[in-house]
Design a protein around this nucleic acid. Structure first.
Lengths: 207, 207
DNA sequence: CGTCTATTTGAATGTACTCAAAAGCGGTGG
DNA sequence: CCACCGCTTTTGAGTACATTCAAATAGACG
């Protein structure tokens, strides 16, 4: 499996391998096996990674840049489900798992480089490398906890408390993302978010 | 591993084993190994399975009955995160995974019988039986899809559309649960749900 | 039967929304 | 490099939906 190209892999696959190494330890052979299913791909700002209705062939790991996942309602309104930046995973899980048409869109908010792999390759490699099965179980558990947290906050907090939580949990994202996208993620209108931010500024000035 | 008690196991563990068999096929030895970590436990209506602040030692599979998972805000308000009935899994995932104090409460809405197992036993058996690692990855994936769906509906739908979706997705639960609990799950007040239901009745009469 | 909690209904309040318009910002092409 | 165009953000006014508070009714449980 070793080849002269091995020396080039670490640069491209550095981040994803480190991400995995946080939870499971792969042997050199397993790393070679795993990286053999990976593809590097670049997406321009505003380009789709996945479109609702199409199959979602890939699972994505973000090397650089930023994407959003969102759903378009029957009335044509966009609703942001989540964001992903460097060192995060994303995909339309429903489409990726079932092979059915995707329920959501994913597009690039910035020029973005991803590491992606196909569903069939994913299924095969989980059988070959149980440690990866373990890895994905672990990150799914963590995602579930995060999602639960978000659901709790959605049903229990007011719009400005939700914004506040978001800003303190993801200060980098708060800086980096257009307000319109954050508003959509929080389930409020851009106008409301603008007002909420103004009120926060004013109340900070006082104290 | 075989013993005279084997003949008693299938009745108690019938449901959980069938649940697992939907995704992975265990050998007789693996079944014996797995069932050896299981405990049957009964909880009376209103009894806690897990209390926020305490460690969550167990993962639960519901044999019969019904439980709710909820969070109590600083102001003392209860917010229902989810329900579980026969053939469903539940636990405070955060507490169970990390060993930290639980974030949520789980209590019985009806007299309930569960199959439960401890975290340490869980971790050990995943290493012994990679098929179970696989099983839990798969059900986590499915839960994630469901959670995402719910988040989408929370941020995009009005209160009565949310109620409508809930009623058509879980008609049995809609019948079985107190309205107050459903209202909390939907993120609205019991008064609002009462009004929403009345309006639905009236609009059904017309047509 | 009596108590306690859940549900219903009403009236007043408030939070976030819609619609509309102005100001700000970034990207593109001349 | 600047001017223009389109999109985002801000601000204002009026509206709608859901909430709070309060009280009455209905149901469940001992």
């Amino acid at each position: 499996m070793a080849s002269v190209f091995d020396t080039f892999e670490p640069a491209m696959y550095n981040l994803i391998l480190k991400n995995i190494a946080r939870h499971v330890e792969l042997t050199a052979e397993e790393v070679a096996d795993f990286t053999s299913i990976l593809q590097i791909k670049k997406y321009r700002k505003r380009q789709y990674l996945v479109q609702a209705g199409d199959p979602c062939r890939y699972e994505y790991f973000i090397n650089s840049g930023c994407v959003r996942q969102y759903h378009v309602s029957e009335e044509g309104q966009e609703h942001v489900i989540g964001f992903a930046v460097e060192d995060w995973w994303t995909s339309d899980l429903y489409g990726f798992i079932t092979g059915q048409p995707s329920l959501t869109n994913i597009d690039a908010l910035e020029d973005t480089e991803v590491v992606q792999f196909e569903r069939t390759a994913y299924e095969d490699i989980l059988l070959r490398i149980p440690k990866l099965e373990r890895f994905f179980r672990i990150i799914l558990q963590r995602s579930m906890i995060t999602q639960q947290q978000r659901i709790m906050e959605n049903i229990s907090l007011s719009a400005d408390d939700r914004y506040c939580k978001f800003a303190e949990r993801y200060p980098q994202l708060e800086q980096r993302l257009p307000q319109k996208q954050i508003a959509s993620y929080l389930g409020i209108t851009p106008e409301s978010l603008s007002r909420i931010r103004r009120q926060r500024m004013e109340s900070l000035k006082k104290s």
